[in-house]
Each structure stands twice: as C-alpha cells, then as structure tokens.
Design a binder for these strands. Sequence first.
RNA 1: GCGAGAGUGGUGAAAUUGGCAGACACGCUAGACUUAGGAUCUAGUGCCAUACGGCGUAAGGGUUCAAAUCCCUUCUCUCGCACCA
Length: 806
Amino acid sequence: MNTPSNYEPEYVEGKWQKEWEEKKRFHVKYDKTKKKYYVLIEFPYPSGDGLHVGHLRPYTAMDIITRKRRKEGYNVLFPVGWDAFGLPTENYAIKTQIHPRDVTKRNIARFKAQLKKLGYSFDWSREINTTSPAYYKWTQWIFLKLFEKGLAYKDETYINWCTDCKVGLANEEVVNGVCERCSGKVIRRMKKQWILKITEYAERLIQDLEIVDFIERAKIQQINWIGKSTGMNVVFKTVPHNKEIRVFTTRPDTLFGATYMVLAPEHPVIKELSNEIENKEEIDAYIKKSMEKSDFERVELIKEKTGLEIKGISAINPVNGEKIPVWISDYVLITYGTGAIMAVPGHDTRDWEFAKKFNLPIVEVVKGGDIEKEAYVDIDDGIMVNSGFLNGLKAADAIERISDDLEKQHLGKREVNYKLRDWIFSRQRYWGEPIPLVNCEKCGWVPVPEEDLPVLLPDIENFKPGIDSESPLISISEWVNITCPKCGNRAKRETDTMPQWAGSSWYFLRYTDPDNNQCLADNEKLKYWLPVDWYNGGMEHTTLHLLYSRFWHKFLYDVKVVPVPEPYQKRTSHGMILGENNEKMSKSKGNVINPDDIVNEFGADAVRLYEMFIGDFEKEVPWSQNGLKGCRKYLDRVWSLINLCTGDTEIDADMELLLNKTIKKVSEDIERLKFNTAIASLMTLVNTFHKRNKVTRNEMSIFLQLLNPFAPHITEELWEILDFKGCIEDQSWPRWDENKILEKEVTIAIQVNGKLRGTVLVPHDASQEEAAQLVKQNKNVEKYINDKKIVKEIYIPGKIFNFVVR
RNA sequence: GCGAGAGUGGUGAAAUUGGCAGACACGCUAGACUUAGGAUCUAGUGCCAUACGGCGUAAGGGUUCAAAUCCCUUCUCUCGCACCA
C-alpha cells in the first residue's frame, strides 16, 4: 500500500473535481425506468460580492441529501442556475456604464468557479440563466398566457414606490414600511401598472398547503399573509338619498352595537354625495392629507386616530332602524373589505379609542366586560344583550341567526375576504424581461405573437430611469414605436419590465428540459420529474418567491402546461449564518467570511463539514473560525486512519454494535436535517477507531461511505488509496441491522426515591426479579435502602430501576 | 396587539412516546513530545464542597416513583404580521 504522508485538500479536491467534471459523473438523464428524486436549492442571484458562507449552508445540506439519494438508487435531479435579472446589477451599470449583460456574465463566472470549488454534485449541463433570451422567451410566454386568461391587467392605482430604487413595489416587497431590498423610503404614488390577479388563487393557495409537506412556520406564514376571514357584507343606507354603503364585518352579531360608521377617505360615496356634505372643505382637506401619506405612515407613524364627521349625511343601522353618524378616517383602509366599516366601539379596541376621542356613543351588546374602561373584545363565547331578537343568544348562535336574517331581507350577504392583494408586476427599469405587449391606438393592448417571442431587451447605453421615473426603455424610440401586430397601425411597446420574481417563478420547470425551444419544457419530462421532491430555501422568500411561484404553477396547471397542482412537495428552511460577533455579516461591519479564503486554508471538505456541524440547521448561528479548525482537525484524523487500517475484513463484535448504531444515526439524522448530530456520531466513531488503534477494512469501508456525502473529496481519495473496489459514488447507502443494535448487556441507572445512587450492568432482557437482584448488590444503593421500607420497585428495562422507600 | 418559535456549561450545542442532563466540538487547565508551537498526543473541565454529598436546564408553582421534556403563572429573546373591521 502506498502511504501518502499528509492530508493535502488542495490536491485531493482539485483531482476529484476534475475527475467528476470530465466523467460527467453527476449528469442525469430522463429515464422512465428509474425512480426519480428532484432536489432543489434556490438558485442564486449572482451579485458582485461573490458567494457568501451563508449560501453554502443550504447548498451543502441539499448536496448531502442528493448524494445520499443517489446511493439509495434514485435518479436524482440536482440542478443549478442563475436568477440574474435585477436591480443591483442595473444600479452597478448606472454607476460604471458597464452593460448589465457584461456585469452579469462576469458575476456568474465568479459564482460558478466558487461553487465548483466546493464539490457540489450539480448537473451543470442543465445550468439556466433567467437573462438569456432562450429562457425569458418562456417567461414572456407565461405572461401572455396570464394576459390571455384575464389574469394580467393594467390599472392605475396607488402603489408602493421606492424612492431609492425608483421603482414600484409589490406589497410583499415592502417590509416594515421600507423597501425589502434597499431599505429605502416607500411612498404612495398613483401609477399605471401591470397587475397579476393572484387573489383569484387565494383560496387554493391556502387549501393546497394541506397536500404538501412544508415546515409548519412556512405554512402558517403563508396562511397569515393571505389572511382569510369569513364574515358578512351588510348594507347600510344613507340619509338622504338612500344610497347603499356596504361594510364588511366578521361579527354581524354585534350589529346592534354599531353606533356610527367610518369610511376610508377614498370611499366613492363621498364624491357621490358631495352636494349634501355640509363641511365639505374640511372633508376635502382631510382626504387630501391622507392621500399624501403612505400606508405605512397612516398606520405606523400616527398613533392618535384622526377623523371627521361627514356632516349632512347619516346612515341607517339595518337591524334597528337607528340613524347613526358617518365619519371619515384613514384608519379604515380602502384596500380591504369594502373600504367602510360599521363601528362597534363596545367590542373593538380601535372603534373604542375613536369613540372615546370623538365622544361617540358606546353600547354593550355582549355581556361580561366593563365598556366604560375599555372595549370588551373577549366575546367569542359571550351572551348577547341590548340586541333585540338576539338577546340571550350565545355569540356564535347569534352570528348564524342574524346572518340568515339579513340574507333573507337582502340586507347582507355572507362573504369571504382576503388580506392578499393583487401582485403589482411592472417595474420601471431596464434589467428585466420586457413585457411582451403592444399598445395600439385602435386595438388597445395587443400581445406580441408567440412566434415573435422573445421580445429582446434592446441594447442601450444609458441605464438611468427615464423622465418621470419611467423605464429607460421609453427613450429607445426605434424599439418602442412599432406597428400593431393585429391591425398594422402605429403602436407602442410596453416599456415596463417584469420584477425579479418573474424568472424564479417557474425556473424549476426549465431544469427538466433546459434546451427545449418548442415549449417551456417537454410534457413527458415534466411528468417524470415533477413535483420537486425537496426544496430548501430561506424563510424570507415565504411570502415572496414561494407564494408567487405556487401561484404561477397553479395557473400553469389550470392551462394544462404542468401535470401537478403544487410545484414543491417538501419545503424546508435553513437559518442564517452570522458573523463571529453575532451580528449579521456585512461589509460595513467587517465581519464577512469569504468562502475562497477558508476553502484555500482548510479545504472544501472541512468547510462543508463545518457548515453542517455549526449548529441546528434551522436556526441562525454565529460563525466560528475555531470550529472550522476543529473540523479540519477531524479530517486530519480521518486521513491518519490509513495507518490504522489493517488487512482484516471482519468487523469486531464491539464494533458491530457501534457501527450499526452510527449507520442508523447518520441515516436518520440526514433526513431530519440534523446534520450536526450525524457528524457528531461520525466523530465518535473515528475517536473509537483511534482509541482501539485499529480499523478493519470493512469498518473503514462503511465509515467512508457514511462520511462521503459530507466530505466527498477526502472519502473518494481514501477509497482509492485503500484500494476498495469500484467507485465510492456507486456504492449503495449502508444499511443497519436492528438486531445488531440491541446490546446484550446494558447499564441502567439505579435510583432511590428518584435520586441517582448508582449504575449497574444487567442483561438487556432481564426480568424485574433478575434486575432487582443485581441492583440490590450495589453497595451504595444498599446504604440507602437498608433500614428503610421498600414501598415500590419500578423497573424500566434498559433504562432505570427505582426504589421508592419510606 | 396578534401569530409562530425559543430560553440548557465560558462558547456552538446534545438529550422530547417523561427514565443516568451536558453526547460531539470549541475554549480553557495541566502534562508529554519539541529549538519552537496558533502542530500533535494524554488527562481534566456544569456549580458548591477536602470529602461524604448537595445543587443545577429563564423564574415560580403543579402532576409523577421519576420532569430540560407534561400542565399553570410570570419574565426574556428571535421571527412573521400589524388599525385586516
């Protein structure tokens, strides 16, 4: 046997990475005869900063899953690509005058080189790039399908406008009132926008969470974001003019306590009745002021409620015919429900505050609280009072009763409302997919014919946003001005582009058939590979990418482009990696760990191992260079097993137990994302080998196979050095034997009155009597039970023997 | 405010059908080998106590022969949502 002196990761890793690439070891083919498994990571945005140690955590985890699945006999798809449209690149282009295409190319090359150094078993032949015309042709194609089905529409509405990015944002992109990407100030702004009707799918996006295996917190977050509530639209009529104002309420049972109404400032009835309003000037001023505020400013910055009574107008409470005042206030949102509420100050904190401030009447309709002091809101099981025919009923019954009643009288209708809003889809920027529509003076919005796709991004030199914050494309007149595909007359292209979330909404479909130029992916291949079996990604995408792509997928399912209703069968999430100082890694804090540096110093296998050993995969955790050193040290110890490896093939009896336990532990822990404890058990195994100063060939072979998904390079090399047969990649995953995990003799704890007084070795199948005998021989225990009366003996085989004495 | 999750050594953490708390690693201490040590190896390392032993999983209470684990109360932290009617 040749005995290489020292573990040199640089040599070992370079050697095997070359081998894998040359032999196309991880390329995968569509093969119906094999059972498939589709593992997906969130494809990276190739930023100028290069890869981050945070990226490595999910990638390494899923590479481990992938490598294990292959050994389990699956035909595994584990692809990678680039989510490359987006603002950072464009902003960089504005600054440097380098074309975003070139910046993207450069960044991708860097990312790719970095990824390759880590030995991930991606199928690089399926690499995709959202900015390549061959790809975004199909992004545009999907958009046209949405348009064709009426799910994409242009509307002028108030949108969230990021003042830094100079771009409209979707609701999901506004986090804590600021831009999700750049933390810039967000204002309300009226703008014509392309909007996707995601709300049409709200119900199914909730319902179908039941058929997938997502981590609970992801499900809950999506459900909360969609925000379903069931209630009733109740009709109030105005005095004068008998105009209908509808309100949405989840508690129609409290209708007798509705002592006034509040309208959102944008509510249309205000205009309709403007002639009747006695304090019109005041009202107009209030409306004007509200409009200038962002939603965030309305709700966050103004703690004190504001509002005005609309004088000259009142409304009739439909249940008791009482005339109630109508107010206007910006705490009522035009975007939710009907933009008008009935105020029940006795039982709603917001209404109560408002009523107190403006001296409006407060009526108790559910017994139990003290409405003088505060709104009584714990009313789910209360009893109705002051409520006419509802008096004495339980709240739940009252809801049914009054809902029936109002529906009968056509004064109300049961309704479901969602917080989810439609998806503001256009971006006033250059570096995105052009929206493939043409505005014709005669025909209106006309889709670009499918055979003319893709609509290519024209080359431009100035990437700065155009006049009045329009896309820079607006000034490329030869691109904008074309003829209408329908009637041939003059027409203009849409100059807004798609948001970054477009390309990522369907990329996993393209991986199944990345070079297809007839359709987005071949039907048979989609049928074979879908759904994605295991998708791991960041929690920050739960209400963005994850929700958007589920929406697109459901739409594609409805138009029979994809064969399954849900794209991802299983979704898990990793925690963030923080700097050594426990703060988020960032350049400005100077705590960024560069993957290149640590791979060069410690080797990719050590980095991979440490990324997985660092702590609970799902929690955030600070980086520790010493921890990384420890993992490298472990690999050195693994390497030195070469010298302990004997020619024997048998497995010693004591080793058999530990080995089987380790196989079980590693196998199960990988599935549960408990990589840290899987590695701990592999460390214990190596410690045992060293203590025994010997490892047989069969023990070594199993050990190397278990370590292989975590540290693929060193295990391949040792497999070769120790001259094992074939290639380690082709070995099937080791199995454990439950019978061999049973220990013949086990150490059990001896307790007296629940306190530990000793331990004893007993046969694993000892009866209570046998165990009692052995246990009583223990000297220390004797001391505690000798002069006492034994009341009870509790024996849990394999665990504990407890004396209860008095 | 609402929803979800968490709180265990100096540090990252293990242990969840209730059954020996602190596996594994980092750090630290001592020793060995060394010209040297940010290398390697050996031993030790929850706290108090010379010891017998006692105490210990955010705090307090409860259930139980037995609680980090189950129940109640309180506190703290993280994440998401946030006037959603």
